[in-house]
Design a protein around this nucleic acid. Structure first.
Lengths: 281, 281
DNA sequence: TATGGATTGGAATTATTATTTCATATTGAC
DNA sequence: GTCAATATGAAATAATAATTCCAATCCATA
């Protein structure tokens, strides 16, 4: 018994792909069918699957045996397990990935951890996002002449993506960068007809707070993305979103923030397009 | 037959909850178990489920019949269908969300779309990432004196995050920005003892390609993150990762790229720490 | 093109699993 | 407390499904 039986779907998949070339015709046929229709394998009976794949039930069993299983039933377990896993909550999946990390599966575990953290964050925000707030924010931003984007450090990548996307949508915007130390002057140009997207998470970058305060004092409406109602950003903002990002290895995910930012941007683009169309007709 | 048989899980669930009070003890027991462990119902046998729920198989069948099914098997179909639906490919779900967004179902649909795109991308890369490549990349980067980070436009946010994280980990790095048009000179300082992380997706920013080529010619090893084996980056790179990002509303997700980038960064940090510790002992 | 080995189809067999049946227990009304 | 109706447990039975077996076929090689 030097050939190990694939216990999880991914290993199984890899094994099949690897041996694909050397499999007999009918077995290959079943192999292809299995990878294309994993759900059918999970739920069907040997006879029904064989019929769908255009082979005999016995071939199906030979296929399973060739892979090292002792029969169709044990092969089917792997396909069922896959559905269970896929279906299990993000939290459980995260736990599973963390568990894998414990076994010390090299650096792969780190990667799994980040994927898990990102998934968790996404599912959290999907649940938590308030539709009405989102709608208000879109309305507010769509009316702005120029959208100022304000974020430092960890949040800066999000800001730069927003600026990129707004640019592609031909929406006037200004990324407040600290390059030449002219942020204060840049902010000075903003008026109440503009709007701001400010992003900051604990520990809040002092510069972001300071700039947000000063721009708020000029009467420019602010949409904030931050991590709690105690955030200093929340007090300055007309509308603010609370985003809870999961962390791994001391680094927090930014995927939820990113998704929210992209959605805001694109929604603003759509709203403007719609408004423009209406005005013309 | 005025009582209709629940055909989908949600209806079934509602029906069960509604009648819960009027059900006999053992039947109620099975009902509770079914709602708590729907996966078990989907895959188990009548005997195994009955045992887990602490009742007789016949009770399970009576339960099914009381709900209007003609036996356990048809009840089970509903639980299986549920898994199928839940698992229906992300692509289908994305398509549905896109359609929803098209018909103007509020801006929430846009947000959902971005979350779905991000989830899809994450689950794809989780499946596709090659452990060995990842390990190699980490080794290569951990040896570098300085890590140069190269990315423009859509990929720039990822690069800026890498630079931020490397900085926090006290790993010397240089983000190649186009601020003052001095990129060529900056790149000129790189030696074969350094390393590069280059990120670019179709349509590849010409500047990124050009800079990657020139730095490769200096013998600096390159780790590339890109979207296909035909990518111009792939030919210059010692190791390259293929990342397929789902898109929504014309904007591609960057969550998978982000997760990979963070994992690389932190893994490099760990590897260095381990190496440092070894040297000391 | 003959020959041996591998592969396949299809029926026979075995196993597993759902369902039915019936005796027993429980519950509630009088 | 008695009786009838209902519910439950356990084993018997029927149905269904997995597996095995063997003859037929295919394929590569000499």
């Amino acid at each position: 018994m030097d050939k190990r039986v694939p216990r999880d779907f991914e290993t199984l998949r890899a094994t099949i792909l690897e041996r694909r070339a050397s499999l007999p015709k009918r077995i290959a046929q079943i192999a292809a069918y299995a990878l294309d229709n994993p759900d059918d394998i999970a739920f069907g009976t040997a006879a029904s699957i064989a019929a769908s794949a255009g082979v005999q039930p016995s071939t199906l069993i030979r296929f399973a045996q060739q892979l090292g299983f002792d029969g169709f039933t044990s092969l089917q377990q792997v396909f069922r397990e896959r559905l269970r896993e896929r279906n299990s909550s993000y939290d459980e999946r995260l736990a599973a990935l963390r568990a894998k990390a414990e076994e010390g599966a090299g650096h792969r575990a780190i990667f799994d951890g980040f994927v898990a953290a990102a998934s968790t964050s996404l599912s959290d925000i999907s649940r938590a996002l308030n539709d009405a707030h989102f709608e208000e924010a879109v309305t507010l931003l769509a009316k702005a002449e120029t959208i100022y984007v304000l974020a430092k450090r960890r949040s800066y990548p999000v800001a730069s993506y927003i600026a990129y996307a707004l640019g592609k949508l031909k929406i006037r915007n200004q990324l407040v960068e600290s390059a030449a130390g002219l942020n204060a002057e840049m902010i000075g140009f903003a008026t109440p007809r503009d709007a701001v997207i400010a992003i900051s998470f604990s520990p809040y970058a002092p510069a972001t707070i300071e700039e947000t305060r000063s721009i708020a004092e000029q009467g420019v409406p602010i949409v904030a993305i931050t991590d709690s109602s105690f955030s200093p950003l929340a007090q300055f903002a007309k509308i603010w979103f609370e985003v809870a990002e999961a962390d791994f290895g001391g680094f927090r995910s930014i995927s939820a923030t990113m998704a929210l930012a992209m959605a805001l941007t694109v929604a603003v683009g759509e709203k403007r397009r719609d408004a423009g169309r209406k005005r013309k007709t």
